[in-house]
Computed example of a mutant assay.
Amino acid sequence: MPLLKIKALNAHTDLLVWKITESFDVLFNSIALKEVSLTRLEGMKSEDHQKGFMAVRRLLMEAGYTDFDLYYDAFGKPHLKDGRHISISHSHDFSVIMLSDENIGADLEMLKDKTLKLAPRFMDVSHLQNLNVDDQLKKATVVWGIKESVFKIKNETGISFKDHIFEDDFNLEDKKCGVTLRFNNTTERFDILFDFIENYVFVCAFNAVSSGFASAER
């Protein structure tokens, strides 16, 4: 079964991860989609995106929900009808959802050389000093995920990754750090957890103090 479930990121939050090994037809026949979701699926040009979309719905089923429990607001942020917070991300071979009693943001990124080349556009590159190239790539990808996950929590037009979201320096071994958002004359702090799943980086952001990653269960 291609489900990797990591429980209890903190006392209020679960992470579910799906490794996509199925064909389009197997995934499609395993889920039920409401009409708007079916239309969205049919409009996707990439089969990778289609399979990622459907794998998210499989994860919802694992958590006791269906596609009919999920809706998106005018800004594209996902919500559950019962009021529990959800964040969604998918990239190539994996889809993830986070479910929580608090507002959260999740991001999943594949390690790609392009991210390191673009690092000066979105982060303080001094945080990459004294690292070998492989660790520079990992750290730059974590930082990109940090900024994506904070943006998902705030979901406000005008937030700049480079100009408004500032990560504390951190070591890859820590698998956690802090981040500051300075936007619209306000300052907010977030707690970040991150981990590595094969050649992917998973990052999550919380408004509140959180605990570390729990053990993975297949």
Rank of each mutant, 00 (worst) to 15 (best):
T186Y: 10
F94H: 03
M54S: 04
M98H: 03
D113T: 13
S23Q: 12
F190Q: 00
T180Y: 05
K175D: 01
K81S: 13
M54W: 03
F170E: 05
A214K: 04
H12C: 05
K51Y: 08
N10W: 02
A140K: 04
G105R: 00
E62N: 13
S87W: 00
Q136D: 10
L193G: 00
I20V: 15
Q129N: 15
V17E: 01
A106Y: 01
K81Q: 13
M110N: 10
I20T: 12
K112Q: 14
V203K: 00
E148L: 03
V26A: 15
L59T: 02
F190W: 04
N29Y: 12
K112S: 10
D168F: 10
Y65T: 08
H12M: 07
L181Y: 02
P120Q: 14
W18F: 13
F206D: 00
L108S: 03
S149V: 01
E47V: 15
N185E: 13
L131P: 05
R58T: 08
S95A: 15
I192P: 00
L3Q: 08
Y72F: 15
S89F: 02
L33S: 08
D14K: 03
H12F: 05
P2S: 14
I104K: 00
G212M: 04
L3D: 05
R182V: 14
H90M: 10
I6M: 07
F28I: 09
V26Y: 12
N103R: 06
L70Q: 04
D14R: 03
T186H: 12
D101N: 12
F196N: 03
G145F: 02
R189C: 10
L193C: 01
R182M: 13
E42T: 14
G178M: 07
E42R: 15
K114L: 11
F94Q: 02
D69N: 14
E42F: 11
N10K: 04
I20R: 08
A216C: 09
K7F: 07
H164A: 11
N184A: 14
K77I: 04
L116R: 02
I104C: 01
H79T: 07
A55D: 04
S126L: 14
P78E: 07
I86Q: 00
L137D: 02
V133K: 15
T13F: 01
D113V: 11
M1K: 13
L137H: 04
P78I: 06
T180A: 09
K147Q: 10
Y71L: 11
E167Y: 03
D93K: 10
E217Y: 08
D69P: 06
D67K: 06
S211V: 06
L111S: 06
L108F: 05
D107T: 02
I104G: 00
D124E: 14
S215T: 09
S30D: 14
Q129W: 11
L116G: 02
F194E: 00
K114R: 15
E188M: 07
D93L: 11
K34H: 11
F196S: 04
K139F: 09
S215F: 05
V96K: 01
L131H: 09
K19Y: 09
G178Y: 03
F183S: 06
L111P: 03
K112N: 12
W18G: 02
E173F: 09
F170S: 06
E148F: 01
E22D: 15
S211P: 02
K176T: 05
Q136T: 11
N130M: 13
V142W: 01
L3S: 07
D113W: 08
H12Q: 11
